[in-house]
Amino acid sequence: TFTSYQLEELEKVFQKTHYPDVYAREQLAMRTDLTEARVQVWFQNRRA
Rank of each mutant, 00 (worst) to 15 (best):
47 R>T: 04
33 D>W: 07
19 Y>I: 04
47 R>C: 06
42 W>S: 15
28 L>W: 00
45 N>T: 08
7 L>W: 09
26 E>I: 14
20 P>T: 01
11 E>K: 03
39 V>L: 08
38 R>K: 12
19 Y>H: 08
25 R>W: 04
17 T>Y: 07
26 E>T: 13
1 T>M: 13
30 M>N: 12
16 K>Q: 13
18 H>Q: 14
5 Y>L: 09
11 E>W: 04
39 V>E: 00
14 F>R: 01
46 R>V: 02
12 K>Y: 06
25 R>N: 03
39 V>T: 02
4 S>C: 12
1 T>C: 11
29 A>I: 07
44 Q>Y: 10
16 K>M: 14
31 R>I: 12
14 F>H: 01
44 Q>E: 15
37 A>I: 10
42 W>G: 00
35 T>K: 04
32 T>L: 15
2 F>N: 02
5 Y>C: 07
8 E>H: 09
9 E>G: 02
23 Y>W: 12
7 L>N: 11
13 V>D: 02
24 A>Q: 14
22 V>D: 09
25 R>F: 08
23 Y>S: 11
25 R>T: 10
25 R>I: 15
18 H>E: 07
6 Q>W: 02
43 F>P: 02
47 R>G: 03
44 Q>P: 02
2 F>S: 15
7 L>C: 06
7 L>E: 08
17 T>G: 06
2 F>I: 08
6 Q>K: 01
43 F>E: 00
5 Y>P: 04
42 W>R: 00
35 T>Q: 04
21 D>W: 02
31 R>C: 05
25 R>E: 03
42 W>V: 15
5 Y>V: 07
48 A>N: 11
6 Q>F: 14
30 M>A: 11
17 T>M: 09
48 A>P: 04
27 Q>S: 09
15 Q>S: 12
18 H>I: 08
12 K>T: 06
5 Y>I: 07
5 Y>R: 09
5 Y>F: 14
44 Q>A: 11
8 E>F: 09
32 T>W: 14
26 E>K: 14
13 V>E: 10
39 V>G: 00
6 Q>R: 01
47 R>W: 04
3 T>L: 07
18 H>V: 06
46 R>I: 02
12 K>G: 05
27 Q>N: 06
29 A>Q: 06
37 A>K: 09
18 H>Y: 05
3 T>K: 06
45 N>F: 11
33 D>E: 12
26 E>F: 12
32 T>G: 02
34 L>Q: 03
36 E>S: 07
2 F>Q: 02
28 L>P: 00
13 V>R: 02
20 P>L: 06
1 T>L: 12
2 F>E: 03
15 Q>M: 10
18 H>M: 13
22 V>T: 13
16 K>T: 12
21 D>P: 05
19 Y>T: 05
7 L>R: 06
31 R>G: 04
30 M>L: 13
33 D>S: 12
25 R>C: 08
39 V>D: 00
19 Y>G: 02
29 A>L: 05
37 A>W: 14
42 W>L: 01
2 F>Y: 12
25 R>G: 02
17 T>K: 04
45 N>A: 12
28 L>T: 02
43 F>A: 00
9 E>Y: 04
17 T>S: 12
36 E>Y: 06
39 V>N: 01
10 L>V: 03
2 F>T: 02
22 V>P: 09
41 V>Q: 15
15 Q>G: 07
27 Q>I: 10
43 F>T: 00
44 Q>R: 08
14 F>W: 15
26 E>V: 13
34 L>R: 00
31 R>V: 09
5 Y>S: 07
7 L>S: 06
41 V>W: 15
1 T>P: 12
31 R>M: 10
40 Q>T: 11
35 T>E: 06
39 V>M: 10
36 E>P: 12
40 Q>W: 09
29 A>C: 10
8 E>D: 15
42 W>T: 14
3 T>Y: 05
12 K>S: 08
14 F>E: 00
16 K>Y: 10
12 K>V: 06
23 Y>N: 14
32 T>Q: 02
41 V>I: 14
19 Y>C: 08
9 E>C: 07
17 T>C: 12
12 K>C: 06
45 N>L: 11
28 L>V: 07
